[in-house]
């Protein structure tokens, strides 16, 4: 996946947007003593599940970029009847106020990536969202089962991680049994020759 070009052309736009919103006074109401802040988030418009999605946020105040601030990235999620936003990544802003992180999208559909700055003693909190579409149908999670030797310690449902070799499948046990039982069979065969010779007395053997 191509890294979104947040740094060069879009960086300017992001800065512009953040600056404009500050100027327009559209910042959320800040608590007493906190400087208002603005955040902008950039994410790719589309992504495939299972790949790393880079996201970037720029945090500014009226005085310029805010460095060393922690920014969280959240996506909305709904699971087993519970709706919420789950944190998927976080980053620390640099001197340009840029926080960069990657996350792996696993849920398909339209995704609103939300960048959240929670605020601190100096700065007021702020949030921003960016839309992206996640597609794909690949099974991603690979059960971590270590190494299995098929025929020795493979479970009723074999999974990946199974070392398969003709020597390891079940039949060597069967072959061993066949070998032993055919040996028995040979002994029984010789035994049957005893009764076959029942007519001959010991004298005839001479």
């Amino acid at each position: 996946m191509k890294i979104p070009s947040l740094v060069s052309p879009r960086l300017a736009i992001l800065g512009l947007v953040a600056g404009l919103s500050l100027l327009a006074g559209r910042l959320p109401a800040a608590a007493a003593g906190q400087e208002p802040t603005a955040i902008a988030v950039a994410a790719p418009a589309s992504a495939t599940i299972g790949t790393a999605v880079p996201v970037q946020a720029r945090l500014v105040s009226a005085a310029g970029p805010i460095p060393h601030a922690s920014v969280d990235f959240l996506v909305p999620a709904s699971f087993l009847g519970t709706d919420g936003e789950m944190k998927v990544a976080s980053g620390i802003t640099d001197a340009q106020g840029l926080a960069t992180a990657t996350f792996e999208a696993r849920i398909t559909g339209a995704l609103q990536v939300k960048a959240v700055f929670s605020g601190d003693n100096t700065y007021a909190p702020s949030t921003a969202t960016s839309s992206m579409t996640v597609t794909g149908s690949k099974q991603l999670y690979v059960p971590d089962i270590g190494i299995r030797l098929r025929g020795l310690n493979s479970s009723p449902i074999a999974q990946s991680g199974t070392v398969s070799h003709w020597l390891l499948s079940g039949w060597p046990i069967g072959a061993l049994l066949v070998l032993i039982w055919s040996t028995y069979g040979a002994a029984v065969f010789f035994m049957s020759r005893i009764s076959a010779d029942a007519a001959n007395g010991p004298e005839a053997a001479r």
């Binding site: 999620a77 709904s78 699971f79 009847g81 519970t82 919420g84 936003e85 789950m86 696993r106």
Partner: peptide, 21 residues
Amino acid sequence: YYGDLEEDVATNGKAVIQISR
């Protein structure tokens, strides 16, 4: 928390988390 490693999501009935993270 009960979750799904395939979609990397779990919940305890109150919050939703990304399991891996």
